[in-house]
């Protein structure tokens, strides 16, 4: 689980071009959207593709992302339970 969380942080920084941010600066429970990392709806779509491409999880409705993408913690938990690759 810890490895997965680290992996997610690295991937998020890379995919979303969060150049000014380091892995250490993202806490597991930091909100990804809004006041936390400040991600927006376009980032959410990027994360949906990341889930599909890297973990074989298909989300067909962008609304599903809301609860899954709350934090690194919630993302990791969802991936652990649902990954197909």
């Amino acid at each position: 689980m810890d490895n997965l969380k680290l992996e997610l942080k690295t991937k998020i920084i890379e995919t979303l071009n969060l150049e000014d941010l380091s892995v250490e600066e993202i806490a597991d429970n930091d909100p990804l959207f809004g006041d936390g990392l400040g991600l927006d709806s376009i980032d959410a779509l990027e994360l949906i593709v990341l889930m599909d491409k890297d973990y074989g999880i298909k989300l067909t409705d962008p609304k599903e992302g809301k609860s899954i993408f709350q934090s690194i913690q919630t993302m990791a938990t969802y991936i652990e339970q649902n990954r197909t690759k």
């Binding site: 995919t15 376009i42 779509l45 990027e46 593709v49 599909d52 491409k53």
Partner: peptide
């Protein structure tokens, strides 16, 4: 496959 929206937007 696996396309992301940012560059399209």
């Amino acid at each position: 496959q696996f396309l992301t929206p940012t560059s399209f937007i």
